[in-house]
Amino acid sequence: MTAETSETVRQSTGSYIYGILPEDVEVSSDATGVGDPPARVTLVRHGEIAALVSDVGLDRPLGTPGDLVAHERLLDATAAEVPVLPIRFGAVMTNADAVVAELLEPFHDEFRSALEDLEGRAQYVVKGRYVEQVILREVLAEDPEAGRLSQTIRGRPEDATRDERIRLGELINQAIGDKREADTQTMVEELAGVCELVVIRDPSHERDAVHAAVLIEVDRQDELEQVVAEFADEWSGRVEFSLRGPMAAYDFVMNQGEVED
């Protein structure tokens, strides 16, 4: 790859960067990345590390669903095999030479050491969502004011009961928030028993019960599945679970000086 560029000429392609990984890997020839048609993915190597890149045209905005899925799919397929430091979506450098000179070379040791820490490990995301009818019943039964308000609005038009509805919804939202906090805490304690690191993610939905990313040895995936299955069983009919992974450790790589929020 010898993309030639000049400072004065407006270039039409750049090197899109997906992640950093060890040098001793191969990219299958059918691996594709962002763009339409999807670009071929290659490695730019330097020392003991490499960057996963593809050429990207600069004439159209990035961020279509296809681009987003391509970025994650490539990194997650990679993470299932080798350690990889995922780069946030949308990073483009001028060309492959610049990737070496400005990214791989100056930060070689730092990246290599982070990759060693990730060896044999991957991220998984656990998400549990309350079943609406069940959680609403729970809240109405537990909160006397909410129970009363639900009787007040029952069968009456929205316009005539707007204040009561807003108050009821607020109570429900608050009650679900409290349940989320308690249930997340319970589950995270169990997850911490099998996982090396656990990060509680912000809820992605108003009925989220649990949303957490974990870092675990890939060999212990069955233990993680076991924990999730136990909760799915215990909260059967109340919370629906999904477990995604192995994926790249998006939630566990941080820039220097960055503080987990």
């Binding site: 905005p61 946030r88 949308g90 450098m93 400005e102 998006y250």
Partner: peptide, 25 residues
């Protein structure tokens, strides 16, 4: 979206010269 737009290494923190501005939807 939840994962790759908000998480992962921010390359700006490492590279300043050869980054290309590209429009992100």
């Amino acid at each position: 979206i939840d994962t790759i737009l908000d998480k992962g290494l921010v390359i700006d923190a490492y590279v300043s010269v050869s980054l290309i501005g590209i429009e992100i939807l």
